[in-house]
């Protein structure tokens, strides 16, 4: 659902031969801009928590103890110290936060991959072949965009029931049109470029032309969109949890933790909302900063923005 401005096709069409030089330029720009570096650091921490959560988390995130519910941070629990307190069922907030990193990131990234894959293929086919198949794909996109996606998501989640897989599919499908439209536009302009003509003249099969020659040249703008989209998927997941359509209760996610904390807000149990809230803000912020930097880096016209 992000509609950021995009780098023009001219940028993406750079031949891929001087990739190493690009990389060096990227590193320099990254260091110079500072904030993106911080963002990468934050995301690395989150990724670390996501991967190693089960080993570093002090307790079972689903182990309840209703006698020790809503415990303050730094309370000693049955299994050990609850550094960030416990939630409404006496589960350790810190452990849930670590496990939550895993699910939230998984949902964010997988949804993008689902949406991205569908969108990229649709866009490539649409842009490369044109004609009726282009029409069909783009009309399908129109249908989807003709009403708010969250309603579609609600409808399908009510039907499919809560579940990590279902969320990923539904949120993923919500993203495909964005990718399809961009890829289509880029493909349309690339199709006429010399190096594509050359590949075709050499007799490369169409599939190869599309995936070997065209695709690599549109990856860059896609990464920009993707980094913004991870952020919006994490937010959507939180909203769906608020409506009771998120993941099942034994699967900790930041969004669900935040949504569940709303009853306790008035009781001043701030830690229930603060930690998952901060986790979401930091992660989303990092993805946004990274996306900004990527866009500026890939589109020199906007360099002033850095």
């Amino acid at each position: 659902m992000t509609t950021e401005t995009l780098p023009g096709p001219a940028v993406a069409a750079k031949p891929i031969s001087n990739r190493r030089r690009e990389m060096r330029r990227a590193m320099r720009s990254l260091v110079a801009a500072r904030w993106p570096l911080v963002a990468i650091f934050v995301l690395l921490c989150v990724a670390f928590a996501a991967i190693f959560g089960p080993w570093i988390s002090p307790m079972d995130p689903n182990r309840q103890n209703i006698m020790l519910r809503l415990a303050d941070p730094m309370t000693a629990g049955r299994q050990g110290m609850m550094y960030l307190g416990s939630d409404g069922l006496g589960r350790d907030v810190f452990s849930r936060l670590l496990y939550g990193a895993r699910v939230s990131l998984l949902v964010g990234i997988c949804a993008i991959m689902v949406g991205g894959t569908i969108g990229v293929i649709a866009g490539l086919v649409s842009g490369y072949f044109g004609g009726w198949i282009d029409d069909v794909i783009m009309r399908l996109g129109d249908i989807q965009l003709a009403f708010p996606f969250i309603l579609l998501a609600i409808m399908f989640l009510v039907i499919l029931g809560p579940g990590v897989m279902n969320i990923i599919i539904v949120l993923g499908i919500g993203q495909w049109v964005t990718y399809a439209r961009i890829v289509r536009a880029q493909t349309l302009s690339l199709r006429e470029k010399e190096f594509v003509e050359a590949a075709r003249a050499l007799g490369d099969p169409t599939v190869l032309v599309i995936f070997r020659t065209i695709l690599p040249n549109i990856v860059a703008p896609l990464t920009v969109i993707a980094s913004f989209n991870v952020a919006s998927v994490i937010l959507s997941e939180a909203s769906l949890s608020f409506l009771g359509l998120g993941v099942p209760p034994n699967v900790p996610t930041w969004g669900a933790m935040l949504a569940d904390s709303r009853d306790q807000l008035m009781a001043n149990k701030w830690w229930l909302a603060f930690f998952p809230g901060m986790a979401i803000v930091m992660t989303v912020l990092s993805f946004n900063i990274l996306g900004d930097w990527l866009r500026d880096f890939l589109d020199p016209r906007l360099k002033t923005n850095a």
Binding site: F242, L258, I280, T283
Partner: peptide, 14 residues
């Protein structure tokens, strides 16, 4: 503006 893009609306509302 950055923070505004990372806060879920139900949370902001409450």
């Amino acid at each position: 503006a950055m923070a505004g893009q990372s806060i879920p609306s139900f949370w902001l509302g409450i």
